[in-house]
């Protein structure tokens, strides 16, 4: 069976270390002025090393989402998974973060669509510190921030 053990590299390793510590880290390029997460060692537009690391809040807004009633291997799901692109607060718009939405009641399209919308504020729900392993799943999901409007 084919198996791989990928070297995460400078940028992603530091990002994963941050998640283990309960922090979302991003990077900034001083040429284009963008701040993005997940971080990378270089700016893909200006083709230069990034200039600074920044600690970001664990809040953001929903850029786009989908309500998925099949698992990755095509088994039907009663309670859907909701993958979403989250724009983390403090990053440049459209520099998103892929994760899941949780904390939503019900399982029908109608009930979920009443609770979610593009542009809605969300907050990370973390694993307990002793259960984190330096992985993207150290954040369990993002959930809507009730009563916060923008």
């Amino acid at each position: 069976m084919l198996e791989y053990g990928w070297d995460a590299g400078v940028a992603i390793s530091r990002f994963l270390d941050g998640l283990k510590a309960g922090k979302i880290l991003g990077v900034r390029c001083n040429v284009c002025g963008r701040t993005v997460t997940p971080p990378r060692a270089f700016c893909e537009l200006d083709f230069k090393p990034i200039d600074a690391w920044v600690e970001l809040p664990d809040t953001g807004t929903i850029n786009t989402y989908s309500i998925c009633y099949i698992t990755w291997d095509m088994k039907p799901l009663r309670k859907p998974q909701i993958p979403a692109v989250i724009e983390i607060d403090g990053t440049t718009p459209r520099a998103g973060f892929l994760h899941l939405i949780g904390g939503v009641k019900g399982s029908s399209v109608e009930s979920i669509r009443k609770q979610l919308r593009v542009g809605m504020p969300v907050r990370a729900v973390w694993r307990k510190p002793d259960q984190r392993e330096g992985a993207i799943t150290d954040i369990l999901h993002f959930e809507p921030v009730r009563g916060r409007r923008r």
Partner: peptide, 12 residues
Amino acid sequence: QSRDASHREMIF
């Protein structure tokens, strides 16, 4: 071994 860099960082 090149554990300190991802292949993308090496290409960069």
